[in-house]
Design a protein around this nucleic acid. Structure first.
Lengths: 195, 195
DNA sequence: ACCTGAACACCGTTCAAGT
DNA sequence: ACCTGAACACCGTTCAAGT
């Protein structure tokens, strides 16, 4: 009656994330995570509902690593820096990252990032009724790129990836220019910018 | 000595694909595929090297379903029709499709589609030394969209997806316009077109 | 040549039992 | 309250054996 917990949910999530990054998603196992924590497999079930819940935790952990930029920076810089932060997270977690593209993005961590994108897009002049749609499209494009870059569909080196991403950013800047016909704002309209 | 085979690789691949589409990738099991074919689990190992090889087969099967358009059609129509065919394949195989984004695209089936895209892009006026790069970017964008649309990251209906995809096509048309500065070809340059 | 039974080392999960 | 041992129903894979 009243034993202090030896492990916490965050420990298990971290162990699972590390396993995925070291050996791929297939090596993420209740047994392996428990062993890594020096505890029996069954002990995990006091802290996570089941394996699916554990993987949700991993996704949430990845999202929490995406840095939100200073809101006082110009919107182009903010979008661009969030996209870079997402790519860095993907590179840090090549095994676990593909989960992001497959789970419905409706968790607190996902909303946190999305909200910051909405604000930048608003300043960019995207009309409010188009915000949801534009964010969805941009995040799909960036996520798809990051997963491809990370999960092995691309085989070339970093320099090529960076150049490709720069081209993708130009494309997205074009989209923003196209969406922001009303409400002119202080941005140079044809500058290769955001997200 | 000399017993006629009861099952063939194609049967196993089809069974695995059906399982994935009905119950998700997690339900694809050597046991389940064998049961579906009315054969013992171990019989499969005469026709596929292991489970990874089976999943490669599934990817190849999906790629084979992407229809290549008549080469005499205008390049815009061809790109657009290949993209639509890919989306249809994704919708037909929601469980298995995400595999496409994660496996290196270096199989005969992948090359077959890629080659057709190269040809269309060439006619669009993309300079030869940019072909590989542009194709890579376009396929990443379309694949990322199709996986998101299919694997549950989006929760809205078909109409919204179609509208989003139309916007994505405009984006890609912008890219082609930007890449095709030399070698003017017979295309209307600002028409919402390809891939 | 093709298929199968038995076996092995692993999975996820539950439940009663220990402290 | 937290952890564990034993147990169950499942995995992928190998190998010797059947026809």
């Amino acid at each position: 009656v009243g034993r202090p917990a030896q492990i916490h949910r965050a420990d298990i999530v971290r162990a699972a994330t590390d396993l995925a990054d070291e050996g791929g998603l297939g090596t993420v196992t209740m047994h392996a995570a428990a062993t890594r924590l020096g505890v029996s497999t069954m002990a995990l079930y006091r802290h996570v509902r089941n394996k699916a819940d554990l993987l949700d935790g991993v996704v949430e952990h990845l999202l929490s690593e995406i840095a939100l930029p200073d809101p006082d920076l110009p919107w182009q810089v903010r979008l661009s820096s969030m996209a870079e932060s997402l790519r860095r997270t993907a590179r840090r977690h090549p095994g676990a990252f593909p989960l992001l593209l497959q789970l419905p993005a409706d968790t607190p961590g996902a909303r946190r990032v999305r909200q910051a994108v909405y604000e930048a897009l608003g300043e960019a002049g995207v009309p409010p009724e188009q915000l949801v749609r534009v964010e969805r499209l941009l995040s799909t494009v960036v996520l798809g790129f990051a997963v491809s870059e990370t999960a092995g569909r691309f085989t070339h080196g970093r320099a090529t990836s960076d150049a490709d991403f720069a081209l993708l950013e130009e494309l997205m800047a074009d989209l923003l220019g196209r969406m922001a016909e009303e409400r002119p704002r202080g941005a140079a309209p044809s500058e290769p910018s955001g997200t």
